[in-house]
């Protein structure tokens, strides 16, 4: 594997990992695989894009980066909006199923329908034509040994590290993190212990949506923005979340990086057109060898 493929894999893997954190959190607390999660990624990217193009200021490239000062701000707003979208989707759809105790799989089907509708809505508004945050070309920084990375890529890796550490601390050191873990283990007991489960559920959706938006803005910056960008990431997200072990944040990010590296390896050895199959290969391997994932406890 060439050094360059490793950099590409790491960057793609950190995007996948950020998305997978949301998948793993909603999965462990709400207990279903949300097929609409990819749409938070796409909606996050389009939220940021809409803000940037409507405001039209602060577009001059900032230092070595390809984007201006507006984009980071727009990304934060987009994260909040995507978090809100996730809460709204739960309020409109999933909360009703939970309230009546619907089968997990009914929620999975509903999330599949919601994903179709959300994506088609993006296509309706923005058309399926790919768009870009910026057209600036970047000069890669050389690290020696053939290792090169653009300033954007380096910033993204750094942002991912910061976000992951922040989420990890939130889960392990704060009251809401404790409550999230408690609800994940036993929602009824959590209520008896004084935990406002509704608040925890909203927090989880918000975090998932916001992190997905962060991944979406990164994907938009590195590749392009398309309505299908989130849906196409869905399989890698699931593969990463399952590989890492459902409920494990470090696992999700590590799983993301493994999937990203496998994709880069596939691109190098087999060809770019097979990139999407790499995630399926990883998923199959995990399910055969260690279905509970790297950091997961055996549980059905």
């Amino acid at each position: 594997m060439s050094p360059q493929a490793i950099v590409d894999g790491l960057v793609a893997g950190s995007m996948i990992g950020l998305g997978a954190i949301g998948v793993t959190l909603t999965y462990s607390i709400l207990r279903f695989a949300n097929f609409a999660h990819g749409e938070f990624i796409a909606w996050g990217a389009y939220f940021a894009l809409a803000l940037v193009s409507v405001l039209g200021i602060g577009m001059e490239p900032l230092g070595p980066f390809s984007f201006g000062w507006l984009l980071p701000l727009a990304a934060i707003v987009a994260a909040v909006l995507a978090g809100g979208l996730a809460i709204l989707l739960d309020r409109l759809l999933f909360s009703s199923f939970r309230a009546r105790g619907s089968a997990t799989i009914i929620m999975v089907i509903a999330s599949f329908g919601a994903s179709m509708a959300l994506r088609a809505l993006l296509e309706f508004v923005f058309t399926s034509k790919p768009v870009y945050f910026t057209r600036e070309l970047q000069i890669a920084v050389r690290f020696g040994g053939g290792l090169r990375a653009t300033p954007d890529q380096i910033l993204m890796l750094a942002t991912t590290v910061v976000l992951v550490v922040a989420i990890h601390l939130l889960l392990t050191r704060t009251a809401i993190g404790r409550q999230m873990r408690a609800v994940s283990e036993n929602p009824v007991l959590a209520r008896v212990a004084g935990v406002d489960v509704g608040k925890v559920v909203r927090t989880v959706w918000f975090l998932g949506g916001a992190l997905a938006a962060a991944a979406g803005v990164m994907a938009g910056l590195l590749v392009q923005i398309r309505p299908y960008m989130g849906f196409d990431l869905l399989l890698p997200l699931f593969a990463a979340a399952i590989l890492g072990g459902i409920g494990s944040v470090p696992g999700a990010i590590l799983g993301g990086i493994v999937v990203g590296l496998c994709e880069a390896l596939a691109v190098q050895t087999i060809g770019a057109e097979w990139r999407a199959a790499a995630a399926f290969a990883v998923l199959t391997a995990v399910l055969v060898l260690r279905p509970q994932g790297l950091f997961g406890k055996a549980r059905r």
Partner: peptide
């Protein structure tokens, strides 16, 4: 209220079990 079974959070530490309620 103390439920009959599964009345503690097994994956949390003792301290965290108490903190959860103390919150």
């Amino acid at each position: 209220f103390v439920p009959q079974t599964e009345n503690i959070f097994a994956t949390l530490t003792i301290q965290e079990n108490l903190q959860l309620c103390a919150d």
